[in-house]
Design a protein around this nucleic acid. Structure first.
Lengths: 333, 333
DNA sequence: ATCCCGGCAGGAAACGTTTCCGGGATGTGC
DNA sequence: GCACATCCCGGAAACGTTTCCTGCCGGGAT
């Protein structure tokens, strides 16, 4: 908290004895006269000049900022994305703005609307759901947007997605191969995009293995540790299983705890697998297998796609799907 | 991606048949003529006007943005802070910029320097270390800064800190009361601020309990899960313990795993406690006790302090210490 | 009826840059 | 030595707001 007046380009010009246009050119590398450049640099040092990014933004019409909007940065999948997006952007000089929208769809739309305020050059968006208003807003957004998650095919926006349907299917098949025949499934809320996709994947996985679908085996819960515990308790109170698939790692770890409380051994009595392959999977006990949905990859790819657009690429919208993969640990051996 | 020209205040003025000054006044609530306000609002709707925050920032000299800089958003403690800071700021209309500096002190100083670019109105900073250059930069920062973490007393900047020294001491005393007499300690790197403070706390805790200090009982590691595993292996290969304090939860959970591998029961043979009280503590097995250092509280308080400064408060720098507390779970019963 | 005062709206300047444009100097080719 | 092209630099406009200042109008008091 200090001097009341930061030096502007005018002061630099005065000290250097040149015009402000020359200062600007010198600083932006648009002059070939090295003596001029030196004089300007000296003056810059002397007065301690730092350009105002706000004024630059106003003039150049870009801000050097990119926003990332998701539901909750506390969610490990989004966290993994941020950890890739931030360095990717920073390396090329962009700053990252974080919007946690909470479970509020209005807030999410608010972010989209606010893009017209021109405070960012682009947006990476992880929508909770995709409503018609989303589609409308995405159709004529004032800045490039990349959506991570499911998106109707006709929305002209770059899109990177995981295939959690396939991922859930893979998990089921993996459990089947490990010997499981009654595979319980604790899903997240079915009215969310991932909840729905994983439910489908579970069913397809059963089909692929020739196992019958039994709705007794399915439980719905929050995507949280406590959700997983409640889900597992209800499930196990109702029926018996020899494997459990959790729709994410927290749910699965919750199930792990309940199984121990009930004295069931993992993996000998019951195999357990989660999804997202986050830290809690590795640190759980026993170390838990999980379906990696490539969150980090999706984040990085989204950032790269966005940067391409900002570079002026006008090719048709891209649609990238990151394939899931299994990380096998002790809970399904 | 759409229309090449967003409407400006001039268009609104033209449509409304008034001057741009009147539009500005109407939009900012600086006019009492309700008919004027209505006419302007109608025109705004008609042309789809959205103010340019960049132009506003240039004129008003504030940006509505606040930066949060820390080492790594992947660190659960920082994550907890962001989760409090972001909503706190958003509720009063500020946007949050995220700077993960990595382990790079230069980068951290770069953030401080970049404040002169005036792209944010304030900064919440979690410094890795506090060098003289930090102090110099903090002494005359162009915008308010709140530092989370240790800070020399004479730096005139708001400061909120945890007392991890006391926290580590509490952990030791808790273990002692639970019956432990040989308490191992797996610290983080001792040249980091938290590593050092926790080391001191550990020693003071021993003193308070009348236990002798034995350097055989101390191991240094990364603040990570793998670090905890390595540290625990070395420690247990060298000597025997009846309790382990991990300098953070990941370290402690790593120790938990090693103990199980070695067939030592927790908490019966060895009690384990971590620090930071993050998700992995609750989801570990057995659920692990941890010293809460109030990360969320610190984040919220820091944000509130910053907002007060931005509101024009010029009272002397504030120094807030958030007291640690114990969260007891099964690993120390 | 005149004067004064208050309120309200419009014009214009300012925020700090970048960039267009034009003029003077310099250099090149005849 | 002259014409012409080239290069550089300075002046000025522009980006889209907010706000100061001025002038106008109307109303109340004398």
């Amino acid at each position: 908290m200090s001097q009341n007046h930061r030096p502007t380009i005018h002061e630099v010009a005065k000290v250097a004895g040149v015009s402000i246009s020359s200062v600007s050119r010198a600083l932006n590398g648009n002059t070939s006269n090295t003596e001029m450049v030196e004089r300007v640099n000296d003056a810059v040092r002397q007065v301690g000049y730092v350009p105002s990014v706000v004024a630059q933004s106003l003039k150049t019409r870009h801000t050097g900022q990119i926003a990332f909007a998701m539901e909750d940065i506390g969610n490990a999948a989004y966290l993994a994305m941020v950890r890739e997006i931030q360095p990717t952007l920073r390396d090329v000089g962009y700053r990252l703005l974080l919007h946690s929208t909470g479970a509020d769809v209005e807030d999410e739309l608010g972010v989209l609307d606010s893009l017209s305020q021109n405070y960012v050059d682009g947006l990476v968006l992880c929508p909770l759901r995709v409503t018609e208003r989303h589609v409308a807003a995405l159709r004529d957004t004032p800045v490039p947007v990349v959506v991570i998650g499911l998106l109707p095919d006709d929305v002209p926006v770059d899109n990177v997605r995981a295939d959690s349907r396939v991922g859930a299917g893979m998990a089921v098949e993996h459990l089947y191969e490990a010997g499981a025949r009654r595979i319980g499934f604790i899903d997240g809320p079915v009215d969310t995009v991932p909840g729905h996709a994983r439910y489908e994947g579970y069913r397809r996985g059963l089909d692929a293995c020739g196992l019958p679908f039994d709705e007794e085996l399915v439980e719905f819960a929050d995507f949280q540790f406590e959700g997983g515990r409640h889900g597992a308790r209800s499930l196990l109170a109702r029926t018996d299983v020899d494997a459990i698939l959790g729709a994410n790692d927290l749910i699965a770890v919750g199930a792990l705890h309940v199984l121990r409380e009930l004295g069931r051994s993992v993996p000998d009595d019951v195999r357990v697998i989660g999804m997202d392959d986050t830290t809690v999977a590795a640190t759980g006990f026993p170390p838990m297998s999980s379906v990696s949905l490539g969150s980090a990859d999706r984040g990085r790819i989204a950032a790269q796609l966005l940067l391409r657009r900002l570079d002026g690429d006008t090719s048709p919208p891209e649609r990238v799907t990151v394939p899931p993969s299994l990380t096998i640990r002790e809970s399904t051996l």
